[in-house]
Amino acid sequence: MDEHDGGERMRTIGGDHLALREQVLTELRRRIVDGDYAQGERLTENRLADDFGVSRNPVREALRVVEAEGFVQILPRRGAVVATLDETAVRDLFAVREQFETLAAGLAAERATEEDVTRLRNLLKEASAATDAKDFGRVAELNSALHSAVIEISGNRWLASLSAAMYHHVHWVFRVGAAQRAPHSWKEHIRVVDAIAAGDRDAAVEAARAHIEAAATAALPG
């Protein structure tokens, strides 16, 4: 890389712009997941630019990303609106989760170290405390963190790569019903972690499957 006289490193062209877009993207996604922008709510570029205190360019680029991720839809005559978590979308999400998370739990049971198990148990303790405190935003974060940790511990890089985008939607679905699900969810997680700690692949797979089935039942209409 070229340098100025005096040894100062030159700034990469566009670097600040990219960083700004990523900041807008992260905040836009968070506001949708946390319900600050409600399902079906219209999101104009001007409104978002005002909300974030930025120009329209990084907003436009962030909207393209969240549209591709399924958080936003572009509708005729309305423009960008927050997507709706309809029954089909939620069923499809849980169908994929069952495949990913049962595989991850089984592999994690075979590969987890003592340090890995300690990490999972610490997440469980934090989730229990957040549930008792009714801090459901934090519970949702810890829910995603636990599932991501199990996938990481599985050691399967394809699972980690393919599931990254999915977990934004997992967080979204969980956040909607967190107050009802939180007391049950972390107890189901205990079964998964106990099986991983015991190195019992079959038990880990079944505990993960039971957890996904319970979460799907809670998220979907009867």
Rank of each mutant, 00 (worst) to 15 (best):
A164E: 13
A133S: 06
M166D: 13
A129C: 01
L103V: 05
H189G: 11
K125N: 13
L103D: 05
T131F: 08
A108M: 01
V96I: 12
A105Q: 08
H169R: 15
S144M: 00
L103Q: 12
E141Y: 05
A140G: 02
D202P: 07
H147G: 15
H189Q: 15
N143Y: 04
S163Y: 15
A149Y: 03
D200M: 09
E141G: 09
T113G: 11
H169V: 13
Q180M: 06
G155A: 07
S163L: 15
A127Q: 03
V139G: 09
E126T: 04
A145V: 02
H171K: 12
L124A: 04
D116M: 06
A130F: 01
A165T: 10
T102R: 07
V176R: 15
G177R: 08
L142E: 03
A95L: 14
A182L: 04
W158I: 12
I196V: 13
Q99E: 08
F94N: 02
A112W: 02
A165F: 09
L162D: 12
Q99W: 06
K125Q: 14
G155P: 12
E115H: 12
L162A: 14
R111G: 00
P183S: 00
D132F: 08
D202C: 05
R111V: 01
R121T: 01
A198Q: 11
S154R: 02
V96M: 10
A140I: 01
E110S: 12
V176T: 11
G137Y: 00
L123K: 00
A130K: 05
L146A: 02
A165R: 15
V96K: 11
E152M: 08
V193F: 08
H189K: 09
E126Q: 15
V170Y: 06
I190S: 14
F174Q: 06
T131N: 03
G199F: 00
L120M: 15
V117M: 01
V170S: 14
A130H: 04
M166W: 01
A133W: 05
F174T: 02
V176Q: 11
Q180S: 12
K187W: 07
A108N: 00
G137R: 00
I153E: 10
S128L: 12
A109Q: 00
I196T: 06
T113D: 06
S154K: 04
E152D: 13
R175N: 11
K134S: 14
R121S: 05
G155L: 11
A129M: 05
T131R: 00
A129G: 05
D202A: 08
V192Y: 05
N143R: 02
E98N: 06
I190T: 15
A160R: 11
R111Q: 09
E126P: 04
A198M: 14
A130N: 03
V117Q: 01
I196L: 05
V96R: 13
G177A: 04
S154N: 10
E115N: 13
A197D: 05
V170Q: 06
L142P: 03
V150W: 01
H169P: 01
F94T: 10
R157K: 13
G177P: 07
